[in-house]
Design a binder for these strands. Sequence first.
DNA 1: GTGAAAGCGCTAACAA
DNA 2: TTGTTAGCGCTTTCAC
Lengths: 359, 359
Amino acid sequence: MRPLCQNQCLGSICMAGKNATIHDVAERAGVSIGTVSAVINRKSTVSQHTRRKVLQAVSDLHYRPSAAARRRLQPTAEKSVGLVVKEINNPYFADIIIGAQMAAKERGYNLLVTHTERSYDLERELVELLVAKDVDGLIVNPLLDDNADLSHLFELKRHNIPLVLIESVRGLQANMVDVDNVAASKSAVEYLIENGHTHIAHFTGPKYSMHSAERVEGVRRAFSSQRLIFDEDDIVPAGARIDDGYTAAHHYFGERGKRPTAVTCYNDLVAIGVYRALRELGLSVPDDVSVVGYDDIDIAQYASVPLTTVRVPKREMGGRAAELLINSIESAGDGEYERVFLETELVVRESTTRVHQEA
Amino acid sequence: MRPLCQNQCLGSICMAGKNATIHDVAERAGVSIGTVSAVINRKSTVSQHTRRKVLQAVSDLHYRPSAAARRRLQPTAEKSVGLVVKEINNPYFADIIIGAQMAAKERGYNLLVTHTERSYDLERELVELLVAKDVDGLIVNPLLDDNADLSHLFELKRHNIPLVLIESVRGLQANMVDVDNVAASKSAVEYLIENGHTHIAHFTGPKYSMHSAERVEGVRRAFSSQRLIFDEDDIVPAGARIDDGYTAAHHYFGERGKRPTAVTCYNDLVAIGVYRALRELGLSVPDDVSVVGYDDIDIAQYASVPLTTVRVPKREMGGRAAELLINSIESAGDGEYERVFLETELVVRESTTRVHQEA
DNA sequence: GTGAAAGCGCTAACAA
DNA sequence: TTGTTAGCGCTTTCAC
């Protein structure tokens, strides 16, 4: 009772919404579906003549076997986990990806990576895509949005799909791996204060980043615990990328003429951008301005002035996230949620110095 | 004729190889599979009591609906393409990914990224994984290996899965997007020669990279066309990363005491590594040594000495690859293979200078 | 409200 | 060598 051809093909362009199925091919080739299947799977039981007819039909119809359907019977189904990060062009995430990949591989899983590029809708869409692709679990680095609809994340629970968060989300109970950003940021600033700095600016990250909010909070706490006054103007919106730091620093040091003795940055990329702006303004690091980064990405130690920064164990974060996830997958995750906080470390290089006494 | 429970569950740990199916849940809850399906899909036709029983069984059995099976009927199947790159922690690839992602998105497709991290086996495995995940097409940045078994790539043809290559592979006919590396590398060296340099070294990329081989070839041609002698010792094996450049340069300039007036590098990362080694050896860029990179990644212009480099249109490459692929998907790809070569440009910044006449 | 049954695209026996 | 058929795990009518 099947129509002759489900698709309406016009020349080489297939007009149909539906793709050709094995039935269509069988029909066009005038053979049974079993035979088509045999050809597709390179069984040696098919005659040259029949094979040729089938291949012709396959090609005419642009037939593609549905991977979903064929996989079912092969219990060899590869294990995989999905990873959703915010930015792909950031060495910080590259390391997280590598850490996750290695740990997953170790356990026999492969990693599928997607990036949301700051779009909240995309985050939702990609999570759904990964679920549709039947990954065994998900690691998500969520966008921060106070009005956010978290339903795509809650949906995972309903489907019993294990989830590990990198960076926390308000209002969602889940496994998580992160560092204590407030504490790390606070101690970086305290280090500067101990070295005589009293006027310190902080270049913040993107609005959508929980980490950025936490790091700002750390700066605030460092000041208040040292009883120093703190000017809101010295919280400077920058972003996550090199040129964000560059632009923000030019504006801050140039147009607004501010002259703190030290600057802490959302991340190392921003710090590198700040470097260039300072160089262009004739200010030297660290003699005129001390600069502190965050993350300790590879290039931090390769900068003209090796960068003092907060080292985040990026690979370990990715690795732990993958392990947590896979444990959760394999134990069918009825345990409590785990929240893992990894250690950071202030790596002092040459971009910071004790403040000159002349003040 | 089904056994009572396909799985043997012990406490909370599921010992079975097979996962629970909708049948298992139905059985445990004492209802039909239709009812279970209704609960999973939040139909409002189920009584509180039944729903509760089902949910309990779902939870007991750690049941997860198979996405593959459920997707079949929903023709809303999201469109997606897979991307396989060699290294994820390289800004070059980050830009390619972003370009591909944007172009794909534009056409209604999402991108699934994987990285092979220099492993040939992994490349094969990931291609197979992506096919199993039913992506509509694949963009692959292949590892170079002369003994390589390309069957995983040929397999794609048999399954009518469109493929676009970034970087060519010997012996494989397929769509491709690339730049002319030989020409670009040649003209970079020629630029140096025009500026009086006669002793030039080249720091090569990884062995698995076709691009690296092509760039070396470009250097050779520049020399021979200028009738300059060329010492094989000045082809220095480095790699693709910052520390590869650093290590190689230390070895070359330090231990072996070579002193060319200019260096061209496989990529910008290597160049940045070379910068640091030169700095540590007390050599200045460009006064003692001119340095040329390749790719023009973001940090190139942010380096202490802004880097002269060959600009590769990375985003455009990713974008064109995605477009080619999607055209091929939607036209069911019976056209000829397309090979697209994009333009490069030598961007002269401050890391190169005319050679001092003192020689 | 719930169950039975058909069908999705495919593979793997097993007949013919 | 080829065709037929019984599933795979799920959703969706359509009776009961």
